[in-house]
Design a binder for these strands. Structure first.
Length: 281
DNA sequence: TCATCACCTGGAGA
DNA sequence: ATCTCCAGGTGAT
């Protein structure tokens, strides 16, 4: 169990894992499923209707994990740059819908789509003097009309969100089961949903299903591999990965980075986007 | 199995 | 102003 002051709230919220967060003064206020959370760095005064320790994965043995992934100077540099960065254990349904919405979009636009969904389908709750809408429940989203979803500016993702929500509602996708199953099985199951490919399945597996060997390879990660790991992994280019190449590369990555590969991805992703001055929330 | 291409939308840059 | 291009990808052909 790590100390709370080893976690950097600002860095962690601004690392592309979560989208429904806003900074007000010194506090970060966000939505995780049906919970509202208020985080602040100093003093470490946290308020939530949910379990913040669980959300911030305080049960992870960071010392062990960081030691395990510190296998080259690139990762060590990335960790040194954002030592307080942590993976988050999100509400699975919110994470699943969030990353279905992420396809071919920007962080700002993803955030906007999700805020629209909450406003239209969520429940207004109050915490610490703030009122905000929770994330839509499975049933609500599964029964939403296409018009309502399109009104949330989801674009071509509207039908994916609808189908994805229906799959959970009908229990075709069961997050408790996926949490128990292994990485391969969870990804295979998620990919049976329209709109979910390898990259999005990896995000859901890593950020909400405790699959720490998931290593989402997006545009940025691919650039990172090309820039720093050209010699470690064969056949890397800037061209989009085919499904087969993604899976082969992922196998090689787990062999190289180990069982906590997902943590290394998070540090590398954060480092490279900051280096390119890309904006977060 | 692989290569192309289209796809909603909003913002940035020419 | 208007256009083009791109953004944490994926599905159809």
């Amino acid at each position: 169990m790590q100390k709370t002051d080893s976690i950097n709230v600002e860095t962690t919220v601004n690392s592309g894992q979560v989208f429904l967060w806003n900074k007000i003064g010194e506090q970060w206020i966000g939505i995780d499923g049906q919970d509202i959370m208020i985080l602040r760095q100093k003093p470490y005064n946290l308020k939530s209707s949910g379990n913040i320790d669980n959300f911030l994965r305080k049960d992870d043995d960071l010392e062990k994990i960081l030691k395990n992934i510190s296998i080259d100077s690139t990762v060590r540099g990335a960790i040194k740059q954002s030592p307080g960065l942590r993976l988050i254990r999100q509400d699975p349904f919110q994470c699943y819908i969030s990353f279905v919405c992420s396809s071919n979009s920007s962080i700002q636009n993803i955030k906007s789509m999700l805020e629209n969904l909450c406003r239209k389908f969520g429940i207004k709750k109050e915490l610490g003097g703030y009122q905000l809408y929770t994330f839509p429940k499975v049933e609500t989203l599964a029964n939403a009309t296409m018009k309502e979803l399109l009104d949330c500016r989801l674009g071509f993702r509207a039908k994916y969100v609808k189908e994805a929500a229906k799959a959970v509602y009908s229990n075709k996708i069961n997050f408790k089961d996926l949490r128990k199953s292994n990485y391969q099985e969870a990804v295979r199951s998620l990919k049976s949903i329209l709109g979910i490919g390898n990259k999005i399945a990896d995000c859901i597996a890593l950020f909400s299903l405790d699959k720490l060997e998931a290593f989402p390879i997006d545009r940025w990660t691919q650039r990172i591999l090309l820039k720093y790991y050209k010699d470690s992994f064969c056949d890397i280019s800037e061209k989009p990965l085919t499904e087969k190449k993604y899976e082969k590369l992922h196998d090689d990555i787990v062999k190289y980075f180990g069982p906590y590969a997902g943590y290394s991805q998070q540090f590398l992703f954060k480092m490279e986007r900051d280096l390119n001055k890309k904006s977060w929330l």
